[in-house]
Design a protein around this nucleic acid. Structure first.
Lengths: 123, 123
DNA sequence: GTCCATCTCAACCAAATGGTTTAGGACGGT
DNA sequence: ACCGTCCTAAACCATTTGGTTGAGATGGAC
């Protein structure tokens, strides 16, 4: 899991049960008991999953008597979205540049037989 | 890792080395040897990381003689973004509804002594 | 052909993950 | 004061993960 925040958050969402918990909590806070009812596994297992989400900062647990309402901190999803968008964009732009290069090559149909092989890098 | 696509993809990004590989590949294709130079770990370890990215569909390996250029399939990041955005939005909307309710309560200042307890959230 | 570079495969290992069971602590209601 | 509910803690287990090393394949260059 590698201890850094982004890794913890991605790892937290790399499990269907945990994603389902996030989905449920996006509709409103809930207690462990309420949540655990929906899954096959033991209540303790669900609690462990919540702990994982908590360590990623995605979730906080309140205190109301013996109940512990669980609350989703949805803002914490933003860094992930940002990361994903950044590199998707980067690849997209690079692709468009490559596209432009190819278009230019097509335009230079003047000299045909030039072995163009692997122009892999342009960075 | 749980075998489903979304889990595999989230899990693939839950590692700083793998995220770095994606970052590098977003700038252009590269071979295993080129990539592996940048990391402390063995070339085989980097290859394993690439395999993880490959099984998540984020990366494909070509074939050019004995070289295997690695290519980022940046589109595969979209489902993650979609998932994240969906639940962030959901929570956001719910929060706004709650906000409206609270505003309405505040408007009903008729009876003053109502214990308001912990309205910890305000963003 | 021989040699070198690039990459894959397999065995092995320590540590983390995802679950279980059992036990116990803290509150609220009666 | 007692009981039941809600939750946490801890020990244990199987499997996965992230790394290592060593030993081939495979293909290009000479």
């Amino acid at each position: 899991m590698s201890t850094d925040q982004l890794s913890r958050t991605f790892a937290a969402l790399a499990d269907p049960t945990r994603r389902d918990l996030v989905a449920r909590l996006s509709l409103g806070d809930a207690t462990l008991g309420e949540l655990a009812g929906s899954y096959e596994m033991s209540l303790q297992a669900v609690s462990k999953h919540l702990t994982v989400l908590e360590r990623a900062g995605l979730v906080t647990r309140g205190q109301a008597g013996t109940r512990r309402p669980v609350h989703l901190e949805a803002d914490l999803l933003d860094p992930l979205t940002d990361w994903l968008e950044h590199y998707r964009r980067q690849a997209e732009q690079r692709f468009q540049r490559l596209d432009a290069v190819l278009a230019e090559l097509a335009a230079d149909e003047a000299y045909p037989g030039t072995a163009r092989r692997n122009d892999k890098e342009e960075r």
